[in-house]
Design a protein around this nucleic acid. Structure first.
Length: 515
RNA sequence: CGGGAUGUAGCGCAGUUGGUUAGCGCACUACGUUCGGGACGUAGGGGUCGUCCGUUCGAGUCGGAUCAUCCCGACCA
């Protein structure tokens, strides 16, 4: 798909025909007519990531990785505050481990990368290398698609007594799922994530842990990513393979589709029984432990892009922006440049003292207009521009990325103003996403209306009879799935009749087309 | 694995019924003029036309095979 008239695949806003005065805050929603292309284009142009030579895999570039690192750091602190510790388990899992938990197998045993040999040799025909047929493994190793099995086989050795519980470990790692169709950040063959795995003495404690973690995710999404999410339970049909209950945070993207941004599972005793993990309780009786697992991935990067980006590029909430303030000097001569830079470095120091990350764009090979466009593309929340006129007047031009508004203001008191502006931008980005969601979520009680509306990118709150059959039929007919049975944000417990089957229902659930 | 499409410079693309030395835009290099919203001029560098086989006096162009990639399904955070 490319545009024949402009010979360019780019769909992000082009250099405007007329510049300067025509530039102003404008309607900033991604081009709905080709959201996917907008998304891919943005990722490449903002230098977040690119397709790798390996099919379905992704290269995360330094700028994109800096955002991911910031996410990691903030999440990691939250985990540790709940008593979780970090650990690391092997990449390779013996094939037999997968045979132990029946449901888990059916959910995960497919689409995995398998290691069958352990050595290469020079090709007999002298061209390159081939797999040494002599080096076949006794038992194949699976590249982890998730680590439940290897972790539970390890926990068995760690747990003997009630005194050993709870065990709460998290690992930051990569996992591999050999997906047929991939999309940058949203679904790649290999992705980065964190997975927490906990073992508890009682079901209540494990259920509590699963709830605590989904709230950690919700808090992170809302307050750090500025992403309004709905917390809820997955329907049995959408649950994680092997879980008794799956809690999720669901976000709405700007095309109205849903994105599952994080999950927390109550695994019951399934894994404990499969891997024979028992402890002696206070009476000395052997009991199986209760388990949870929870994770978020680089998919959060996709959510960030799709929820906030606009036609000018990425929009980063200040809490996640690797660069929060960029300063662009406008100059003609080298003396001017130096004088402006001196003043900018002074401001930079002030802002850094307030805890902000600041970049002075002192490249003398690029024109200011190019830099403006580039930093907007990269989503830097605030831009300060300063030229000869400002030098004379003691002012600076302050531009905010979320609204594209700019205003001239005095250098005096600038740092304090920027400091406050950060919170303002963070809140504004959240509120904008929230009002978008509110504008695109509604109750629906008519099946024909459902079929029409669900395709236009809406979250529909509908009654559901609680059966897998109905859920599946709706999915087959419309591609829509139950995103969650909400526990906050949009809870509506009321009597009604199932949208499809007409059977009685006690509460509405969230239906949407999902990524 | 089913259905559709595409492989020509780092990227995006032209290339007519087969015909001489394969082009264009962006990017890149050098110099100059510019610099308050994606600059412009001049001069340069860069290609076994995915691969193999065939048809032909002659193949980027026609035929076959093969490999790879992308899109639509099945699978999925």
């Amino acid at each position: 798909m490319h545009c024949r008239c402009c010979k360019d695949r780019a769909i992000l806003a082009k250099k405007p025909e007329k510049t300067n005065k025509d530039y102003m805050a404008k309607e900033v929603t991604p081009r709905a007519e080709n959201y996917s292309q907008w998304y891919n284009d943005l990722i490449v142009k903002a230098e977040l990531a690119e397709q790798s030579a390996v099919r379905g895999c992704m290269v995360i570039k330094p700028y994109g990785y800096a955002i991911w690192e910031k996410m990691q750091r903030i999440l990691d602190d939250k985990f540790k505050a709940t008593g979780v510790q970090n650990a690391y388990f092997p990449l390779f899992i013996p094939k037999s481990f997968f045979s132990r938990e029946a449901e888990h197998v059916s959910g995960f045993a497919k689409e995995c990368a398998v290691v069958t040999h352990h050595r290469l040799m020079n090709s007999p025909d002298g061209k390159g290398v081939v797999v040494d047929p002599e080096a076949k493994l006794e038992e194949e190793l699976i590249v982890r698609p998730t680590s439940e099995t290897i972790i539970w086989s390890t926990y068995k050795n760690w747990i003997n007594s009630w005194r050993d519980l709870p065990i709460m470990c998290n690992q930051w790692c990569n996992v591999v799922r050999w997906e047929m169709r991939t999309r940058l950040f949203l679904r790649t063959a290999e992705f980065l994530w964190q997975e927490g795995h906990t073992a508890h003495a009682t079901a209540e404690e494990a259920i509590q842990e699963a709830q605590t973690m989904v709230q950690v995710y919700a808090d992170f999404a809302r307050n750090t990513m500025a992403l309004p999410v709905i917390v809820g339970h997955k329907s049995p049909g959408e649950r994680f393979a092997g879980a008794l209950d799956t809690l999720t945070i669901e976000a709405m993207m700007q095309d109205g589709k849903a994105l599952q941004a994080g999950t927390s599972h109550f695994l019951g005793q399934n894994f404990a029984k499969s891997f024979d993990v028992q402890y002696a309780d206070r009476e000395g009786k052997l009991q199986y432990v209760w388990a949870t697992s929870w994770g978020v991935s680089t998919r959060l990067m996709g959510a960030l892009i799709m929820a906030h980006g606009d036609d000018n590029g990425l929009v980063l909430p200040p809490a996640l922006a690797p660069i929060q303030v960029v300063m662009v000097p406008i100059f003609k001569t080298e003396e001017e440049h130096q004088a402006i830079l001196d003043r900018m470095y002074a401001i930079k120091k002030e802002l850094e003292a307030l805890g902000h990350s600041v970049k002075v764009d002192d490249r003398d090979t690029l024109r200011p207009g190019f830099k403006f466009a580039e930093w907007e593309l990269k989503g830097v929340p605030v831009r300060l521009a300063m030229g000869p006129r400002d030098m004379e007047a003691g002012t600076v031009e302050v531009h905010r990325r979320d609204t594209l508004e700019k205003q001239s203001m005095s250098v005096d008191g600038l740092a304090a103003h920027i400091h406050a502006l950060m919170d303002d931008i963070q809140a504004n980005i959240y509120n904008k996403a929230l009002s978008f969601r509110e504008a695109n979520i509604e109750k629906c009680d008519d099946w024909e209306e459902f079929k029409a509306k669900i395709q236009t990118g809406k979250f529909l709150l509908c009654h559901w009879d609680g059966t897998v059959e109905t859920e599946q039929k709706i999915k087959d007919e419309t591609k829509a799935t139950i995103r969650c049975i909400p526990v906050d944000s949009v809870v509506c417990e009321e009597e009604g009749r199932d949208i499809y089957s007409g059977k009685p229902s006690h509460a509405r659930v969230v239906f949407a087309i999902a990524y």
